[in-house]
Write a protein that binds this DNA or RNA. Structure first.
Lengths: 358, 358
DNA sequence: ATGAAAGCGCTAACAC
DNA sequence: GTGTTAGCGCTTTCAT
């Protein structure tokens, strides 16, 4: 019934309990916990043991309150239901975990309002930094609320006016790669299922596509969509009702391309012999043997990894200048464009029936 | 250069700044902010105006520190990459938003260790409550760390031993529904692509399937999988190499069934005329016209909604007893089992060529 | 190397 | 109705 007891009331042990049990001041415990200099080895050992015995865990809440922020990263995504984002989230999370950060995923549904709400919320919860992978058009205001450019990294989206960091894919090159491939296969009418007009990714991909197409005097038809498989279905229906449908269809994302694949399949149209299909993102499902969709790989994992690293670096070194990272996409050729002909080529240019002139 | 100024230094305004500017005590400001009783209308108005002018936002950190928790709900999922979870997350988030809670999604990858780490982390960040939709087998320890059963709701998973709340689907009935449907269509050899042995959902679905199959003396073959589309592909390959493959294949989830669909399609096997396919979950992609997969609908949205409501109720009323909610699944019949024959039936039992005896 | 003390921004008694 | 005060659990000078 005297002073310091190893086992406190019932609530989780606080730093005070540890200090009391170890016979040191809370400042010392704090130092031990934070791996600080200037603690005698003996003291440290003892404190660590008590911590273990008591099962003490520092309150990140209190810590964040006093030090300004928590070991938490906020990830804002447009639509968690779109497979691209879960994959991105996974890689970001993995990288964050390595640095002992937790990731909070927030779903904005591409609503600028929600996006801002989340940003505010995250910030006042002490989130150390933000990864913004939501496509909205609100970056000015987002940056405004964040206050400090070093606390945010945009991903898969090139901020227009500002000096903030971002990690994107070179979409123009991606578009060109894909068009070159299709044109090389002999296609002369390409259909592009785009995203909504405000989506820069979509516009850039189309730009690349058009550049290559113009060079080869190939016709490109564009239909506006909304990144959903359904928009792929609609586009196919629309084109098939014309007299000369495209012989190759490109979705602005794999999701969209999958819709096209399904719609074609349902109509008994053979892929790729009658119509070829390709997309962007190289998401797992489309990539697997299951679908075998030709796709422009965005290197989602690398995107996630690099964006998080960049963010952490910025957080650690306030002096850092904003960085713009542009990943070079690569074309992954699969069944939906190449048929089975070149399938057993060992990669060393057994060019099969493919002509690459233009 | 004197005392209280409307515009503080530069840091975000605190409650003190507001109090000073409004000429009241911080307690009053706190009351206004929390919509508390006993504040004169005039005072409230004035304070609110100052708050607006200064752009003051209460620190949820400080608030959580003192009051014990933040307006945050933690959602633990097995694998954010599995479409089931994003959909669940979306509905939970929507419901949470309505109650002014934010949702933090954590990806456990079904690792008990990660799961526990996240639980701890969430708790010491002041998360008010947890929705646990991760399939792991660690519930004892999870409950232990959470401490209070009222702060957690399990979803899509029936906790074995404990008295905690959960929201699940009646998987046995689901399995039976599906089997009855297939048997009614004349199938006598059903293949079930299961999950890993520890997955209760999978076992339950199989149980239902078997119950119906035994009653109709129908053969059921089971292959173990892992919830991925790839396991669906493997199962198909394995069965097709036997002399009498199943005439109907059931995936433990739509993801798995999609793998099967793709594998069959690749081999040119007609669905459903040669082999029928069905799954569980009724995820959007499978549900859409794109695939037209027959599926046992888990009512994901309702699951999410109800679990969150339940949790919030428990948090608000400490007296509440744990509740077990079991949602009744329903069978959604689509192309992959029914062909096109009954497609234009208007739902009023134009039983077509389907016999429902057994 | 260690301790004392002053907060971080807020809530919650308890006074008036 | 409103103000005073004592913390929440921690970090961080500044002494010693």
């Amino acid at each position: 019934m005297s002073g310091a007891r190893p086992a406190p009331g019932d609530r989780p042990p606080t730093i005070r309990d540890v200090a009391a049990a170890a016979g040191v001041s809370i400042a010392t415990v704090s130092r031990v916990v934070r791996d600080h200099q200037d603690v005698h080895t003996t003291t440290r050992e003892r404190v660590l043991q008590i911590i273990d015995e008591l099962g003490y865990r520092p309150s990140s809440l209190a810590r964040a309150l006093v030090s300004g922020y928590a070991r938490t990263i906020g990830l804002l995504v447009s639509d968690i239901t779109n497979p691209f984002y879960p994959q991105l989230a996974k890689s970001i999370e993995r990288e964050a975990r390595a640095a002992d950060y937790a990731v909070v995923i927030c779903n904005t549904e591409d609503e600028p309002r929600e996006s801002l709400r989340y940003v505010r919320r995250l910030l006042d919860q002490g989130t150390a930094g933000l990864v913004h992978a939501s496509a909205g058009v609100d970056e000015e205001r987002v940056l405004d609320t964040v206050g400090d450019v070093r606390r945010i990294v945009f991903v898969n989206r090139r901020p227009t006016s500002t000096a903030s960091s971002f990690v994107v894919s070179d979409n123009i090159t991606g578009g060109r790669l894909l068009a070159d491939h299709l044109i090389g296969l002999g296609h002369r009418r390409i259909g592009f299922i785009a995203g909504p007009p405000w989506a820069a990714n979509s516009r850039e991909r189309l730009t690349g596509l058009l550049a290559a197409a113009n060079a080869g005097s190939v016709e490109v038809r564009v239909l506006e969509g909304d990144f959903t498989p359904a928009s792929g279905v609609r586009a196919v229906e629309s084109w098939l009702s014309t007299s000369h449908p495209p012989t190759a269809i490109v979705g602005v994302s794999d999701q969209v391309a999958l819709g096209a694949v399904a719609a074609l399949g349902q109509r008994g149209i053979k892929i790729p012999s009658e119509i070829a299909v390709a997309g962007f993102d190289n998401i797992e499902f489309a990539a697997s043997q299951i679908i075998g969709l030709t796709s422009v790989a965005q290197h989602i994992d690398e995107m996630g990894r690099r964006s998080l690293r960049l963010l952490l670096r910025q957080l650690a070194a306030p002096g850092t200048r904003p960085q713009r990272i542009e990943l070079t996409p690569s074309l992954v050729i699969r069944r939906t464009t190449q048929g089975t002909r070149a399938e057993d080529a060992d990669g060393l240019g057994t060019a099969a029936a493919v002509s690459e002139d233009v």
